[in-house]
């Protein structure tokens, strides 16, 4: 079952006395084969949980790095069906590492919610993060996903006040994703101390693990944020490391290694967080 894998992983890293490293990569970036190789090697490089981006033509909450990754993926012909097939392929080799699909609602809506959930479950997807589905739209996908045994991981933000937080946490499962800033992915965190306060505020309302994302770029950031958070999410920095190796949008010899190299550094960072 989906959320069991997520729960088990958070419990395991907690027992090690450290936060989980959650890594985001875009499915199909820069092409299907390279992306599969990056995905398959993430656990070995040190990722505890994997967020796999479902590319969308209009990523309204993303900064330039993830926008471009999505564009490269779509140009290489990536579809939602192929993204699900990537998870299926990964699962044949790894039955333990949780995979969370992250993206926007329209491709799922067009695939058909029930058909998508059945296919996601079959492929071994553990959870979903869908940026443009707030609690007000829970009937669309959140409730059906929970019924299908797939976690629905909610984003909470600096604008989610204590009055609103219970409603946001109500149907959340797996973990809570705290967005460290008001902004798009890839921007810089203005005040890292504030993030710790926010995590403690959320934890007062829920027993779920709290992972922090947006603006974490290197091992040092991961170690700092990981003092308070149960997980640190890194996306744009990994995407940029991949992008830096590309030759006119195409992968080179260094592409897969660049992603895994950064993930290994980040993994060392989370292990220093509470050291």
């Amino acid at each position: 079952m989906g959320s069991d894998r997520i729960g088990a992983r958070f419990a395991a890293v907690k027992a090690e006395g450290r936060p989980a490293l959650v890594t985001f990569v875009m499915a199909g970036d820069p092409d299907l084969a390279t992306s599969q190789a990056i995905l398959d090697g993430l656990p070995r490089a040190g990722a505890d949980i994997i967020e796999l981006g479902m590319p969308f033509s209009d990523p309204m909450a993303d900064g330039v790095a993830i926008q471009l990754a999505g564009q490269r993926a779509l140009e290489s012909g990536q579809t939602l069906r192929q993204t699900l097939a990537m998870v299926e392929d990964f699962r044949r080799k790894d039955s333990q590492t949780p995979i969370v699909l992250m993206g926007y609602y329209n491709p799922i809506y067009i695939f058909g919610v029930d058909a998508f959930l059945a296919a996601a479950r079959e492929a071994g997807v553990d959870g979903l993060i869908v940026v443009d589905l707030p609690p007000e739209e829970d009937g669309e996908l959140c409730i059906p996903a929970l019924e299908a045994g797939i976690s629905f991981i909610r984003l909470t933000t600096p604008t989610t006040d204590d009055r609103r937080l219970p409603a946001v946490l109500k149907n959340t499962s797996g973990f809570v994703y705290y967005v460290s800033m008001t902004g798009v992915t890839g921007a810089a965190i203005a005040n890292r101390e504030r993030v710790g306060e926010a995590v403690r505020r959320i934890k007062a309302h829920t027993a779920l693990p709290v992972a922090v994302g947006f603006g974490i770029k290197n091992a040092e950031d991961a170690a700092f944020i990981g003092r308070d958070a149960d997980g640190v999410v890194v996306g744009s920095a990994i995407i940029s490391a991949i992008a830096d190796t590309l030759d006119d949008g195409r992968p080179t010899e260094g592409t897969v290694g660049a992603a895994h190299g950064l993930v290994a550094e980040l993994a060392a960072g989370v292990r220093r967080a509470r050291g």
Partner: peptide, 12 residues
Amino acid sequence: GGRFVAETLMPL
């Protein structure tokens, strides 16, 4: 119609 926006915007 509806309100399909990121959580950051929802309170606003």
